[in-house]
Design a protein around this nucleic acid. Structure first.
Lengths: 196, 196
DNA sequence: AAGAGTCTTGGACACTTGACCTACTCCACG
DNA sequence: CGTGGAGTAGGTCAAGTGTCCAAGACTCTT
């Protein structure tokens, strides 16, 4: 295999792990399977990472970052509050529909992280970055449209995250897109009533 | 070990599996560990169930039923719409706070079921029964207080499930009870505006 | 009491897992 | 050059997994 710097290999391994986990599930994501994805030998995994767990830590961090970036890029700036909020939800939903397996993976990673004490902080971290991302979007909308929120941005972010998480999880199970979008729109309307 | 009828043993095994999975996580729930929980030999698991998967199918069904029963038992009859809705949310939240690991298990089971084609219907079934349970609760409230809902009960149920799922998942990560309750209350208020 | 049918046992099986090891190849630098 | 260390290949390891089986033990019917 081509010679690659260890640090670059680490990034490659993280990406390979994400690919495999997205496609086949977290349970099927073994060190062998990850190495196979890159066409390299298993030994490299333990040369680049102290353990498989350390690799998964990195996976969670990378995904959390990517989520925030993707969500923020999805919103279309400009327009009034109503269309901004709707656009934000719509952008988010496009992401979900385009990458259902990736969404499922985030839930798998969350439950995995929550199951033992040492990885639990990662779940908190992941959630904190999600909330921060949403708060940033709300601030964007507020700045772009000159509106204010009746409730603190922090609480608004928590409500939004609960909604998106809940709707996504439900849709992953029943795949009823029409209902999911309808629910999302209903919540968007409710949210708009909190704008001044 | 004491001689037990196969059908009874099946129920015992399901309960043992739930105990182990709740306490130690779905990944740690092996056939050996389940048998150990009952103090019986591993062979019995495959004497009573065709496979471990069949056992987990049963686990999902039993848990889904229990959830609905618990949620429905939470509402206090009598009183106005506002207190009924609040009571329902409050009762649900008490269950979550009392059994965080059990809630985590439901998410683990959902992601597990969604990961392969043959168990996927179970995830749908689980969700359908949750929705049906919430619809029943909404109907109860409607009947008891003589109120009507501005939107179809089905959509209302979907919104409620999204909220409870989202808030629960978030709380499992950050354990910020005050914020979770606040978010739940905010949603309850929004929901009340849909009552006539 | 004898037998049939129902449960239980403990071990064996084929396989996968994460971890680790050693011999090797290659490249940059002195 | 040539040498040392970074990077690789491929294999081994013990411990785990779900599944299966033969043999025994219990309980009811005849």
């Amino acid at each position: 295999m081509a010679r690659v710097a260890a640090q670059e290999r680490r990034a490659d391994l993280v990406q390979a792990a994400i690919k495999v986990a997205t496609r086949e599930g977290l349970a099927a994501t073994t060190t062998r399977r990850i190495a196979q994805e890159l066409g390299i030998s298993v030994g490299i995994v333990h040369y680049c990472f102290r353990s498989k767990e350390e690799l998964l830590h990195e996976v969670i961090r990378v995904i959390a970052e990517a989520q925030v970036v993707a969500a923020r890029a999805a919103i279309v700036p400009g327009g009034d509050v109503a269309s901004s909020v709707r656009n934000a939800f719509f952008g988010f939903w496009q992401l979900v529909e385009a990458t259902p397996q990736a969404q499922l993976l985030t839930y798998e990673l969350t439950t995995w992280a929550l199951r033992n004490a040492e990885t639990e902080p990662l779940a908190k971290e992941q959630r904190a970055s999600q909330l921060a991302g949403i708060e940033a979007i709300l601030a964007d909308i507020s700045a772009a449209t000159g509106c204010e929120w009746k409730v603190p941005a922090e609480q608004l972010a928590r409500m939004t995250l609960a909604i998106t998480d809940g709707v996504t999880l439900g849709w992953l199970a029943d795949r009823d897109t029409a209902s999911a979008v309808q629910t999302l729109e209903a919540f968007a309307d409710q949210l708009l009533k909190l704008a001044v």
